[in-house]
Design a binder for these strands. Structure first.
Lengths: 249, 249
DNA sequence: TATGCGCGAATGGTTTAACCATTCGTAAAA
DNA sequence: TTTTACGAATGGTTAAACCATTCGCGCATA
């Protein structure tokens, strides 16, 4: 038997990662963008210029640009005066990613719904702390809009759902927390498909829904964060329960 | 004056998207993977074979593969018997995306901290509903570990912080919701910088922290979701208050 | 027999050079 | 003034060749 190796199983050294050429390019450009040196709207140099600066071939450079595009950091336009434009990073890729997880069954609809419950609660609580009088007026306006749709009967249901969503997103904006805004946007863009099920429950459910919304808005107006959180959570929770009963998985 | 165009401003037709060649390749492969025809671990044909099947050049094919790699759907290995391997889709790319949002957008430390508050609350509540006896035993084990570190005095502080984080991530895993897991991972990987500030508050704070953790674990063990949520929220809230006092922005 | 070395094949990584497709400013033509 | 045509700049795509990495196989050697 040989003497046992020292540090067996421990990480004595950091693994050397063999950077592929395109990765080096990605890292440099990403760093520059994230650091703010390149602001949204900026145009990167042309490919034939960039390939010189990085000392790689055009093919390699283009692989790097594709990666940056997929990350949502740049947008590539053709034609003269086209090129790689630095993008305002938003939640689009986030929502695309969540969609992928759902399609792959790594995340079930129920997971998404449960997650939404927590997010909406947090948003409502924050909004209650931060809403200005103008914000509150706007929320009440949306409430009025929702009530109007409700009175139209079946014809107004779709519009009601849209107003409901507008109200939730308004709360997110009032929370003034970009993370909540982006995450909630992503959740909505992936949960839409299942609204149809909900609609089939009819007027009774929509009325309950409206009452919930009213409660939330009033709690926000009163600056009662914890109350708003509880109401919002319960609101989404009830919604989820209907979904589940309806058999959506 | 000419007669006004019909449907002015309305979306009469769906916009024709000029698919670039690589996008067609991405879509086909992505579809096959998501549909489950290609299972994780499967090896795609070699590039020189694939380029024939899709009728594109190798460069174009490789741009497509880079995109799929960036989406987290495949992993590319070199060497004979290497190639494009279909990956088990997980939340890594989701974390990466959120990380980009945090680094890039106007997400302040305070936004991040506030957001964490809501997430940790949701995680704790879910964990309380779903924890098995084994899970609870594991949490208690981590508690013991934390207590041990605490007794070491200043030398153990860093280890304590690491155990604290392990405990929070364990709760996320117990919640069994990939969204919570990924989101919390990205929060932690972006909040680390600020731990140093916290440490400087010394033993008193760590002891409070430990008491919080104990309370959370006990609530989870008792299956009391709302209590766990409140405790976790308060736990993070207090942490944030210290951060703020310390002047971190 | 067991071990180690080296070669060759298969695969991804990279380069080069050329040409195609799109866009837009500008100058010529109506 | 308006329309048209063209040319330049940019990204999109192709082709063929070579480099780098990995792994299996067979041969040489202890």
């Amino acid at each position: 038997m040989y003497k046992e190796r020292q540090f067996k199983g421990k990480h004595m050294f950091k693994q050397v990662r063999q950077n592929k050429a395109y990765q080096g390019v990605v890292e440099q450009i990403e760093e520059t963008i994230v650091a703010g040196t390149l602001k949204p709207g900026s145009l990167l140099p042309a490919e034939r210029e960039l390939k010189e600066q990085f000392g790689v071939s055009r093919g390699t450079l283009r692989e790097a640009l594709r990666v940056l595009e997929q990350k949502g950091l740049i947008e590539i336009r053709t034609g003269v005066s086209g090129g790689s434009v630095v993008r305002e990073v938003n939640g689009d890729k986030l929502s695309e990613n969540i969609g992928l997880l759902i399609r792959n069954r790594t995340v079930s609809l129920q997971d998404l719904a449960t997650f939404r419950e927590g997010i909406e609660g947090g948003v409502a609580a924050l909004a209650a702390q931060r809403a200005s009088e103008g914000d509150i007026a706007f929320l009440r306006e949306l409430l009025g809009e929702a009530e109007g749709h409700l009175k139209l009967g079946r014809k107004g249901w779709n519009a009601f759902i849209r107003t409901d969503e507008k109200l939730h997103m308004a709360l997110a904006r009032i929370s003034a927390n970009q993370l909540y805004i982006s995450v909630l946007e992503s959740v909505y863009s992936n949960i839409h498909t299942y609204y149809d099920n909900y609609l089939s429950y009819g007027k009774q459910r929509l009325q309950e829904n409206y009452d919930d919304l009213r409660g939330i808005v009033e709690a926000v107006a009163a600056g009662e964060g914890e109350k708003a959180r509880k109401l919002a959570q319960g609101h989404v929770e009830r919604f989820n329960a209907y979904m589940e009963k309806k058999g959506a998985t």
